[in-house]
Design a protein around this nucleic acid. Sequence first.
DNA 1: GACTATCATTCTCAAAAAGTGAATAATTGA
DNA 2: TCAATTATTCACTTTTTGAGAATGATAGTC
Lengths: 293, 293
Amino acid sequence: MELTDLLTFSAVARTGGITRAAEELNTVQSNVTQRVKALEAEIGIALFERHSRGMTLTGAGRRLLPYAQRMAALSREALRAARDDGEPKGPLAIGSMETTAAVRLPALLAGFHRRYPAVQLSLRTATTADLVAAVLDGSLDGAFIAGPIEHGDLAATVAFREELVLVTARHIKNLTELRAATPESGPTALVFRTGCTYRQRLEQVLTEFGWPSATRFELGTLDGMIGCVAAGMGVTLLPRAVVGRNEGVRIHALGTAQSRVETLFITRRAAHEYSALRGFIACLNSKDEDIAA
Amino acid sequence: MELTDLLTFSAVARTGGITRAAEELNTVQSNVTQRVKALEAEIGIALFERHSRGMTLTGAGRRLLPYAQRMAALSREALRAARDDGEPKGPLAIGSMETTAAVRLPALLAGFHRRYPAVQLSLRTATTADLVAAVLDGSLDGAFIAGPIEHGDLAATVAFREELVLVTARHIKNLTELRAATPESGPTALVFRTGCTYRQRLEQVLTEFGWPSATRFELGTLDGMIGCVAAGMGVTLLPRAVVGRNEGVRIHALGTAQSRVETLFITRRAAHEYSALRGFIACLNSKDEDIAA
DNA sequence: GACTATCATTCTCAAAAAGTGAATAATTGA
DNA sequence: TCAATTATTCACTTTTTGAGAATGATAGTC
């Protein structure tokens, strides 16, 4: 049960084939075959079903896989923990929603880098759902997501409070005009890809306006969305701070019920000793004081 | 970061020396030295301080050790999980307090073995405190302990309800006589070794009787305790069912406040999929129905 | 129905790693 | 100073791992 074996096993399970796993692991097919066979021999039970177009997990393989993944994650953490002498340094992988990354993070990250230049910070943007999964499996150290969330393995602190506003083209002066300018079926809703929490809020809002089946149009980037709204393609829902003083669009406040949303910073509970992460959370907590001062 | 290296590292940390670790691992000193050095080279930091009389952990070593232990435990579990096809079989390590083992378990274990003969059940008796630690570090699959307990990583079910009674020599008819027959300083209290919950209860009871500093006498076995009480050496506190129809001693009921105690069966939450353990818990839950039927 | 592309497996051989045993060095206690 | 205990170093053997080419098996294609 060496880690190498478990790692190759994971790779084969993930890619569904020896060849692809070998590529991913930078080795040759024959080696992967042998590692898998060695593992199967040691455990005494087949982990894969071989068929002409690759390999799929057997029951035993499915039972083993989560352990293999946890052990791989643990070994990465172990290495970091041992090297971590209390001084924040080394890699730190942070995730964020697109919107938060656009307006809230630049100042925060700059401040963090000034304070801890030895930390190699990386930022990845994705949807809340993806970010939660990434933090849980250890591929991110922490992430900014839309609250609320309840999960036993995660620790969360409120990072920012946002007010969600409806964003329309400039010439729409108020909601009555929007209704007038919109066909019976409702406006086109410009949304991020599935998994984004703001998207769900927008669905709720549109339903309340009596447009439950409005056309959806998916975009990947924030600039793209605001541009499309300005061009009159449709409406969207965004934090007020994100839209800011943008010329081409107009902001419409909503009732408080749907409009308040908290951006949380989540981390795995178990990983709380990592200095770089501790330093980041310290930065996060001190930013409010900085602003107040 | 192979598991072998982490295992040897753990052994050296535990035994405090290369020589002893080598013995424990059935290998030679030179090999252990090399594994440790390889690990240190890979991590890039010293894990031990070498001094003439063995090795002690450095800060980095202390940070690494818990990871090494968790990974070792995980690898054992992984092996079991992969081999576990849903049919209870293989080893099952159960722990118990002395008192529970004496009167409650014989019937239960016999029934379990009749139902699942393929499981190699082992039983270890220890104090509640030791049992909790053993379940947490994975050296026991489950244990019968005195409740209550609160721990995030443990799952507990009520296995038995006991009434604690004061046990004295036969000739002591009631508590008044006990008081009369006892010196000012109080009776000798016969107790199990530290960590036993019943012992703490006895301390409370004696304090309520105005004998806070009564003499303590530690024994390791149940038979020994009852024998000593019968011989008039002192008093003790035990579940009513344990004392049973024992001739040499007399039982004195207490007020309900101190006397009710629940025996819990605890397991690690994470390990709940192991079939043999599931079978054991099923047996435990069905025993009440058996009795009722 | 032969051909090709895509897989996994097997085999041989080389390289790397782990393990062994004896010698060595350092320190402590008698 | 000597003996005992300890870790380290070194030369060596054994085992394991990895590479590369060949083989076999299967599905899709013309």
